[in-house]
């Protein structure tokens, strides 16, 4: 079972709540996804047009809210949003995002580390959104991050896990859970992440903008379960050359004639 900061999660699929056509479809899609962690953003209330509050559509007893700091361009802005998020949710959970470039929305590694150091000391459970940089992941882990969230591809691109090599290194090295975030555009991408050993994935756009978001949410649920099963079952190694399945053929070994019997 997935555990982050001593909290257990029954699903390895986290879903975002943005970009849905309506609050009702969002609620149904989240139901179908089986997720128990949902991300939310913080924004100023539009006083001329005060829309519904998203929290009223989701049962907070059932869903664990993970507020993000989207929109923050610096560590300082992210910290301010984090404190507001804590006041709003009453919990210290936080998806830390610092994205200074509005075009790519790629995360700033330096300010992300800076903000993580400060927020972890303030008692936040910080899950930083990062580029798939293994050393950064370890530095964040050392700074007190509760998990790391490397991107598969820039957010909203649906390009899949283009950072597979680095994500694999992060998974191999990190002690904290690894949640692949951003870029996951199809259930097969999510399955691939779980097969690689990622602890969870976060999906938003791919579900929200699907022709049938509820059905797509279910497809992601199944893909995540399949991917995790495959990982736990132990995948056979991929190879570009054929390997005979009988032991004595097909493999050439080193000459070990120097070994002496009985020595």
């Amino acid at each position: 079972m997935l555990t982050i900061a001593d909290t257990h999660f029954s699903s390895r699929l986290f879903v975002g709540t943005g970009k849905f056509a309506s609050a009702d479809i969002m609620r149904q899609a989240i139901e179908a996804s089986g997720a128990d962690m949902v991300t939310v953003a913080l924004r100023r209330v539009d006083l001329d047009n005060p829309e519904d509050d998203i929290m009223s559509h989701l049962d907070r007893e059932r869903f664990h809210f993970l507020p993000n700091t989207s929109g923050a361009r610096t560590a300082e802005e992210a910290i301010r949003l984090a404190r507001l998020a804590r006041a709003a949710t009453g919990t210290p959970w936080l998806k830390l995002e610092v994205t200074p470039d509005p075009r790519t929305l790629l995360p700033d590694p330096i300010d992300t580390l800076k903000a993580t150091e400060i927020l972890a000391q303030e008692g936040f459970i910080v899950l930083p959104y990062i580029n798939a940089d293994p050393i950064l992941a370890l530095r964040l882990q050392d700074a007190g991050a509760a998990a790391v969230m490397p991107l598969g591809a820039p957010i909203g691109t649906n390009l899949g896990i283009r950072t597979a090599l680095q994500v694999e290194i992060i998974i191999e090295q990190a002690r904290v859970p690894v949640v692949v975030d951003a870029g996951i555009g199809a259930p097969s991408h999510a399955a691939r992440a779980l097969e690689m050993g990622a602890d969870a994935v976060l999906v938003n756009t791919a579900i929200a903008v699907a022709g049938d978001p509820v059905r797509m949410a279910r497809a992601f649920r199944q893909a995540v379960e399949s991917g995790r099963d495959a990982f736990e079952a132990g995948l056979g190694a991929a190879s570009t050359v054929a390997h005979a399945s009988s032991p004595e053929t097909g493999i050439i070994g080193e000459d070990l004639g120097f070994l002496q019997e009985g020595a």
Binding site: P247, I251, I252, G253, E254, D255, L256
Partner: peptide, 12 residues
């Protein structure tokens, strides 16, 4: 133990 040459080649 029966695959020592293969282990050696991979290790090398």
């Amino acid at each position: 133990g029966s695959f020592l040459p293969q282990l050696a080649a991979r290790s090398r």
